[in-house]
């Protein structure tokens, strides 16, 4: 919660003009402070807040060992969408994606607009399997919710990259962490779009279960 309280006039003047001006400035400052962290078009947090928040979450991982995940997403063929339907429709599409996704994330998650048609969602305290599930949910839910525009129904899809910061402290800084997610996003685009990519080798291989060949021997008793 923002503290919108202002200090009382030190001279206890009920009709103090300095006090009035101060109160007004304080309110304006609070508004600007909040606005400076919000992307006006989508209502998501902006790039500046992304860097601050991600820095804090990485520090939390360093202290607790609990992983932080980020999902980086890019709307597929967005340039073509703009060329076909116009920039106003493009802006509506960005707003629609943000609105659809806001319902799919937890209250502790931090949705940010990275720039252009790219989004980064910070998932505090989330490991890779959990983050993959979130990314896939975002992708699937958007494909189920086309943008309605003047009787037309315009399908939207996204490509997503997932990266995690764990107690192995994989990335030296916020920028490197984001870049890792960006590389998986690029891979998702390369592989044909409308999909989620991540570091497969970071998932625990399921090879520890007892296989059917092993069961054959054990069940021979």
């Amino acid at each position: 919660m923002k503290n919108t309280q202002t200090a009382p006039c030190p001279l206890k003047d009920a009709d103090c003009p300095v006090q009035a001006a101060y109160t007004e400035l304080k309110a304006a400052y609070d508004l600007l402070e909040a606005a400076s962290r919000i992307d006006a078009l989508t209502g998501f947090f902006n790039y500046r807040h992304l860097l601050d928040a991600l820095n804090r979450e990485m520090e939390r991982t360093r202290r607790t060992g609990i992983a932080t995940a980020i999902v980086m997403a890019d709307i597929d063929h967005f340039k073509k969408f703009n060329d076909t339907h116009g920039h106003d429709a493009g802006n509506l599409a960005l707003q629609w994606v943000a609105r659809t996704w806001r319902e799919q994330i937890r209250s502790i998650d931090i949705p940010c607009r990275f720039g252009g048609e790219e989004f980064v969602i910070i998932l505090p305290g989330t490991d890779l399997p959990g983050a993959i599930q979130v990314a896939e949910r975002l992708r699937v839910e958007l494909t189920k919710a086309p943008l309605k525009l003047d009787d037309a129904s315009l399908p939207l899809s996204t490509s997503l990259g997932v990266a995690t910061y764990t107690q192995k402290l994989e990335w030296p800084c916020v920028e490197a962490f984001i870049k890792a997610a960006d590389q998986y996003l690029y891979q998702a685009k390369e592989n044909g779009r409308n999909q989620t990519c991540y570091d497969q080798s970071k998932l625990t291989p399921p090879a520890t279960g007892v296989t059917s060949e092993e069961r054959d021997v054990l069940f021979s008793l």
């Binding site: 090879a207 520890t208 279960g209 007892v210 069961r215 054990l218 008793l221």
Partner: peptide, 20 residues
Amino acid sequence: SPEPTSLTDAYAVIKILAGQ
């Protein structure tokens, strides 16, 4: 113990302790 469930679970524990 001679139960198949015990045998399979004992093997699973060995596999995890060895593999991981």
